[in-house]
């Protein structure tokens, strides 16, 4: 099957800054894919290259097998992008905005689908409101709607939940999940790593314009992160010598990794026997945040 997205050796420079340094990436149809990386890693530049908003210095990008330069019409018909920055046209209402966006893709009489998108994004009662009068989170939802008017098989969301409240974030994810179940390929960037962990089946991590990790979420978690005991010690207690080197200090206290749950009892006993008073004891599952920090640290330039 043709991959939903194929990115080969894409490089982009801004002056002396290498925003993308030869990125290779393939996303299969139907995947829920996460693109993660710290600020300035090149996520938006990569997405913009895919959307034809940025012309890379070298490399090729395809959407559903269509080259984004030479076959841009088909590439763009197959792609829906929710840009990172909130932008809108203050001249028009929500419905007008969506009708125009449909028209740009050559679609007339799109009202049924527009109604459905509006309902799913909880915007129905704002349909006739001018864009200017919407709150930031509502404007972002309109941008999501704009990316969907032409029912693109591939949907890229660049930090869609920045500035969106908890409830609506849930609504949005529910909707995006359903789109994914219906067969749409989803690519997502976010700085909320729990979101990425629960939604994405595969993840690429980008740093300074290069892919530094690319694997299924499961593999990333199991290869980089451990279960860990998190705890704080009472004032004056010292960590037993045996754990030195193994435990790391975090903001909340100590993090003591272990492989298997059967070890927990012994670890706690060792601590108690050394006279430590444990506070806020927690058994942590491996999480993506750890993986992320670990990967980024490993790639320190």
């Amino acid at each position: 099957m043709i991959p939903a997205i194929r990115i080969q050796q894409v490089a982009k420079r801004y002056g002396s800054l290498q925003a993308l340094g030869g990125v290779d990436l393939e996303v299969a149809q139907g995947e829920f894919f996460g693109l993660l990386g710290p600020n300035g890693a090149g996520k938006t530049t990569l997405i913009s290259s895919l959307a034809g908003l940025v012309r890379p210095d070298s490399g090729t990008l395809e959407v559903m097998g269509h080259d984004v330069q030479s076959d841009y019409r088909n590439a763009r018909r197959n792609l829906g992008v929710v840009p990172q920055e909130i932008v809108f046209d203050p001249f028009f209402s929500v419905r007008e905005t969506l009708k125009f966006q449909s028209g740009y893709f050559g679609i007339r009489d799109n009202d049924d689908w527009i109604d459905e998108i509006l309902a799913n994004l909880d915007l129905t009662n704002k349909a006739h409101a001018n864009m200017r009068t919407l709150s930031g989170g509502m404007k972002r939802r309109v941008m999501v709607a704009q990316a969907l008017v032409h029912r693109p098989p591939v949907i890229v969301l660049d930090e869609p939940t920045a500035g969106v409240d908890v409830e609506l974030r849930q609504t949005l994810w529910q909707f995006v999940r359903r789109l994914n179940q219906d067969g749409h390929t989803i690519v997502l960037t976010t700085h909320y790593l729990e979101e990425a962990e629960s939604l994405c089946s595969r993840i690429a991590m980008l740093k300074a314009g290069r892919v530094v990790a690319l694997d299924s979420t499961e593999n990333l978690l199991s290869s980089h992160a451990n279960h860990a005991l998190r705890f704080r010690l009472a004032e004056g207690d010292v960590l037993p010598l045996v754990f030195e080197g193994r435990a790391t200090r975090s903001e909340e206290g100590w993090v003591l990794p272990f492989e298997d749950y059967s070890e927990v009892g012994a670890l706690v006993d060792t601590l108690r026997n050394a006279g430590c008073t444990l506070q806020d004891l927690e058994i942590g599952k491996p999480d993506l945040e750890e993986v992320f920090l670990d990967v980024m640290k490993g790639q320190a330039s």
């Binding site: 959307a51 792609l79 809108f88 046209d89």
Partner: peptide, 10 residues
Amino acid sequence: GNIIFVLLPP
């Protein structure tokens, strides 16, 4: 920035 909405379509 809303120029993006006419740059994304075909």
